[in-house]
């Protein structure tokens, strides 16, 4: 049963890293660590996709001086395209999240989300 896990170690590693990132994003109190967790999560997906798209012994799908390409020489190009799109999305989200973190730090002088929420609730009750 576990031989599959060792044989497909790229996928196993990807899912483990995904889990680490998911839990960090969900449970860590520090916003910067949350962002790191989010990047872990997305990177794990890219590893999963890249390992699934790779076929051992073939080369990157870039045509070079070939009129009729032989399809058996190249790996699947679609996962690479998906990874590129995913990277663009993840970069923009990281930038947005970091901008929010900067603004939160300016307002509350801490990056601990629990503390921020408790300060906010206290301010609300004082009003």
């Amino acid at each position: 049963m576990f031989s599959g896990l060792i044989h497909n170690f790229y996928e196993t590693a990807a899912i483990i890293v995904f889990g680490i990132g998911f839990v960090t994003l969900l449970l860590n109190r520090n916003i910067i660590k949350k962002i790191i967790g989010f990047n872990f999560m997305d990177t794990a997906i890219y590893l999963f996709l890249a390992s699934k798209g790779y076929i051992s012994g073939r080369m990157a799908p870039i045509l070079y001086k070939e009129a009729t390409p032989t399809l058996t020489k190249y790996i699947n190009p679609v996962p690479a395209g998906l990874v590129l799109t995913g990277i663009v999305v993840s970069v923009s989200f990281t930038a947005f999240f970091l901008a929010i973190a900067v603004r939160l730090y300016r307002e509350y002088h801490t990056l601990d989300l629990h503390e921020i929420v408790s300060i906010m609730n206290k301010e609300e009750n004082e009003e």
Partner: peptide, 14 residues
């Protein structure tokens, strides 16, 4: 709204 956005963004990313 800043805090609300941070929480919303976190859950959406999950």
């Amino acid at each position: 709204t800043l805090v609300a956005t941070a929480r919303y963004l976190m859950m959406s990313l999950l």
